[in-house]
Design a protein around this nucleic acid. Structure first.
Length: 273
DNA sequence: AGGTCGACCTGGCAGC
DNA sequence: TGCTGCCAGGTCGACC
């Protein structure tokens, strides 16, 4: 699914549309997306609650409720949180949960593959996933000296480490490839073999790519949609991801595809060393 | 502890 | 047209 820029876009959209609204009713059409509790308790826990704030940690959306509890959404690969002024006559097949809001509008949780998770928590400290998560890329703690220390212990390929959420939160398969292309670093390099100049460049490019992607409301490959159901436009600026065989914009060599840790990686052999 | 692998699901698409 | 196999943006638990 969506990586950090896409989730951040959804968060901002929801902030604009649903903040301060009360959840009047919750309709669960497929209980498999509800985790950690029963569908009944989930509905009871949300009905009547007002959404006070919407934040993000890594690729998770956090809705702060007026009773001090938290409603957390992980979109995973194919989840969508879409604001809708009205509902279609027949619900979409992928709409798994519908939230009816106090101003007569709706919020739909759509998911084609049921990988996504909707969970209720008493405290954020209870979220196991957050406890193992690395720093946010935009945090000051995520800097060249932190990266240098963290990479020392890693013998894995740098691409695999960039995607590892215990190292840094929010970077997935698309942006890991894009960051390394802009950094001129081969995805196959051993993480601990990077020079400090390369680490600095990678850090700068990480922020640059993520900021640009947020500005363009994310990348839409197949399933990603923003909070209004629209596609993101960062795809146009993607240089290597899913571009196998196309000419590298910089040097015209063909973009290559390899598999690392079971995931596809795209890169330019000529521009990345 | 670091590292690898398969499982979780459904649908779209390429190839035959 | 219709079948089969492969692939997909993430995360977790089991294993070495």
């Amino acid at each position: 699914m969506p990586e950090l820029p896409e989730v951040e876009t959804v968060r901002r959209d929801l902030n604009a549309h649903v903040l301060g609204l009360r959840i009047q009713a919750v309709r669960v059409r497929d209980a498999r997306v509800i985790r950690g509790t029963t569908s009944k308790k989930f509905v009871e826990g949300l009905t009547g609650r007002t959404i006070k704030e919407i934040s993000r940690r890594g690729k998770a959306i956090i809705c702060h409720l007026d009773n001090g509890r938290y409603f957390i959404v992980q979109l995973m690969m194919t989840g969508q949180m879409v604001y809708a002024p009205q509902l279609p006559k027949t619900p979409l097949k992928e709409t798994k949960v519908t939230f009816e809001l106090s101003n007569g509008t709706y919020l739909n949780y759509n998911d084609q593959r049921l990988f996504g998770r909707l969970t209720l928590f008493e405290k954020l400290e209870d979220v196991k996933h957050f406890a193992i998560l690395g720093p946010e890329p935009f945090d000051l703690s995520f800097n060249a000296s932190f990266i240098k220390e963290a990479l020392k212990r890693r013998n894995m390929a740098i691409k695999t480490v960039l995607m590892d959420h215990t190292f840094v939160a929010g970077i997935g398969n698309i942006y890991a490839s894009e960051i390394l292309f802009r950094s001129g670093i081969s995805p196959k390099r051993a993480a601990r073999g990077l020079k400090i100049s390369e680490i600095k460049r990678m850090h700068t490019m990480t922020l640059e790519v993520l900021e640009e992607a947020i500005l363009h409301r994310g990348s839409s490959m197949r399933n990603y949609r923003d909070g209004q159901g629209e596609k993101g436009t960062f795809n146009k600026l993607i240089k290597v991801y899913a571009r196998e065989g196309e000419k590298c914009e910089r040097c015209a060599a063909p973009i290559l595809k390899i598999v690392q840790g079971g995931r596809s990686t795209f890169y330019c052999k000529h521009c990345q060393h």
